[in-house]
Design a protein around this nucleic acid. Structure first.
Lengths: 212, 212
DNA sequence: TGGGTTGCTGAATTTTTGTTCAGTATACTC
DNA sequence: GAGTATACTGAACAAAAATTCAGCAACCCA
């Protein structure tokens, strides 16, 4: 049996997931065709039959009756369902968002999920004076250009760090929000900015039952 | 204007939400009609027009194109839309969650939306030493019994306040997390506990474009 | 007592959507 | 070099679904 998916099929599957995310209901066959420039509804129909045969979707003969199966997640390149990747321990040499670095997917408010963003669990108390605590989950926007005084996530020597951002001529100052710690200075080329912290979620409810 | 919903309309709204939950896509007009024994599609159509006029759903002329708005949560007996009410200025004499007190519905992580909870925007800096800032949105669980040292929302003289909770024999101490402020003591019967703060969301991104 | 809202019936009509059939071209594989 | 999967075109057709129109009955409100 072939559990494989072709690039074209994956694109169709992704589009279906996007539609559900965005509109709340699946696309019609003609809507899929429009998106991919497939003139004949039968071209799309073939894709759907194949995706169903391979177990990625379920359908019936009714309008918009496409359903994603749990297996569909395997064929999706984009995350689904209002989730952002939680980056865990950062593995040396890998890009921050490499699969190896992703611990899990965290469900966040849709407003945040629509961004090109990721989540990071804060370790240490270097930002405590900015009221960001150990264990807080921060949401980091990768598309937002960092401005002076922004709180950023930077990669220095393969370690991710959260600090205030103060760029200088050839150097970058990363300033903690903790009176007990000193600012750090690096040559600009040694600092890889990953994004700007746009939101924060804290769980005060440590001893709560685990949600489904 | 009537932001109200009749029992019949609420039943229809609930059925729509159930369908989305269960099948992954909204029902058609005829499916709704079948469920409620409404013979004419126009009977259902009237309901949909009314629900749309009242802001509970959005639709287009396409098949199954019903979408629940965040407001839909108000009409639902079960919670589907991952939204919690944001309680605004507290009106004297009204229950905290009366329609008059609800400013809007905030989309939150589904884990939180499943609770019997509401959101509150923090005013003032009485909890700043607990790293809760003015403007933060806190999520308050109404079903969680408050324990000593929990951060709670309490209603005292028709004003909602966020404080540490220290119950005593006949009195309740509400303790701020701010060295510049003093604890307050009230007879237990003057304090209406609304719930325990279980989560917090902060937007650091004040000058970002408004999400759609 | 008249006007508005709610909650429908019944029928006609249009639009949207899914399905089927008959082909074509390319690539892979045995 | 035959056989199979992929990825389509184009046309015709059937079905599902939405929309509109013309009513009716019950209720509340003022």
């Amino acid at each position: 049996m072939a559990p494989d998916i072709t690039p074209r099929q994956a694109a169709v599957l992704n589009f279906i997931a996007e539609c559900i995310d965005e509109h709340g209901y699946p696309p019609t066959i003609q809507e899929i065709g429009q998106r991919f420039g497939i003139a004949s509804t039968n071209g799309v129909f073939d894709h759907l039959k194949t995706l169903e045969r391979k177990g990625f979707i379920e359908r019936s003969s009714k309008a918009r009756s496409i359903r994603l199966t749990p297996k569909a997640a395997a064929g999706l390149t984009r995350r689904h369902a209002d989730a952002l990747p939680l980056v865990g321990r950062v593995a040396a040499g890998y890009p921050l968002l490499a699969v190896e670095n992703i611990e899990e997917y965290i469900r966040v408010a849709p407003r945040l999920a629509r961004r090109n963003a990721f989540c990071l669990r804060v370790t240490g108390d270097s930002m405590i004076d900015a009221h960001i605590l150990e264990g807080d989950i921060i949401v980091v926007d990768r598309d937002r250009p960092p401005a002076t005084k922004d709180i950023v996530v930077a990669l220095v020597e393969d370690e991710a760090t959260v600090k205030y951002y103060y760029p200088q001529d050839e150097m970058v100052e990363l300033r903690p929000a903790n009176a007990a710690m000193s600012p750090m200075f690096f040559p600009a080329e040694q600092v890889q900015l990953q994004g700007v912290v746009i939101s924060l979620q804290r769980d005060l409810d440590a001893h709560s039952p685990i949600p489904r």
